[in-house]
């Protein structure tokens, strides 16, 4: 299939555990990119550190595997230096909202044309199962052996509050939704945040007795509902999926080009 042109076979097999949701997200991303027919030499991926961040090695894009939490800062420099490239910034939940929280909110505020993908599996997997800002109160983790008392960030609300101009959420169960949302996020001019709820059967699932990957995926099927759906109306406690924000605002690189043109026309 044509998505094979978008991967680096030399990098495989990937490091993700059997049953991990991250491979589904990679698959969705590749199909989205393939269907949009983007020029491969203009595709860049900048990731941070963690299980999720290894994704940048597997794609045959210009790829930068950077520092924990800092992917958006590297991507901001890259995009400003070369606005014509398309930059995807996949991050883990700890990566994006804990150590990278400051970069995350400021990238939202700046409205720079990047596609941030938060691969939220509610746990630090690479280091062996510590709680993250997405784990939730009452969950178990190696650093919450008596139950987690930390409240969570809602990634969607955080992004909306910080000014992101495209904000969406889906899950690893909803593969076709991943493809369509990533396509819309990519076509959007401005900062896009796509939260994808992913499953970590190895740590989060096992610690919290969520069962294996199949049970975890079914949980996402049963406990989420599209925005405005009858299912959600009947069960308002479900997690909302879909596009929460999609609005036009001046994009940072375009504004910068205007600034340069204004300054140069004076001299």
């Amino acid at each position: 299939m044509s998505i094979h042109r978008l991967i680096r076979p030399r990098f495989f097999p990937h490091i993700w555990c059997p049953g991990c949701g991250h491979g589904i997200i990679l698959n969705g991303l590749l199909h989205a990119v393939d269907e949009m027919g983007l020029e491969q030499n203009k595709l860049c991926m900048v990731s941070g550190i963690g299980c999720s961040s290894r994704i940048s090695g597997y794609v045959d894009f210009h790829s930068m595997h950077t520092l924990h939490g800092r992917a958006l800062a590297f991507a901001t420099g890259l995009k400003l230096a070369r606005p014509e490239v398309q930059v995807f910034v996949p991050m883990g939940d700890g990566d994006a909202t804990a150590i990278g929280g400051n970069h995350f909110i400021h990238a939202c505020r700046r409205n720079i044309d990047l596609v941030a993908i938060v691969m939220n599996n509610r746990i630090y997997g690479m280091t062996g199962g510590q709680f993250s800002p997405e784990s939730g109160q009452g969950t178990m983790a190696t650093t919450a052996p008596y139950g987690n008392i930390d409240p969570t960030f809602d990634v969607v609300k955080l992004a909306m509050g910080a000014g992101a101009t495209f904000v969406a959420r889906t899950t690893a169960f909803h593969v076709k939704e991943i493809v369509s949302i990533i396509k819309k996020a990519t076509m959007h001019k401005g900062f896009s945040v796509v939260e994808i709820l992913s499953q970590c059967p190895t740590y989060f699932g096992r610690k919290n007795k969520y069962g294996g990957p199949v049970e975890m995926l079914k949980w996402y099927r049963d406990n989420t509902a599209p925005i405005g759906s009858p299912k959600l109306k009947d069960n308002p406690g479900l997690i909302e999926r879909g596009i929460f924000v999609d609005r036009e605002m001046p994009e940072y690189c375009e504004e910068y080009d205007k600034l340069i043109a204004r300054v140069r026309s004076r001299s």
Partner: peptide
């Protein structure tokens, strides 16, 4: 570009350098 902190400033120049 005035970044949000010292860390991101250093990271941003690395990104821009790789773009040439």
């Amino acid at each position: 570009v005035q970044m949000e902190d010292e860390i991101s400033s250093m990271c941003a120049i690395c990104g821009a350098s790789l773009a040439g």
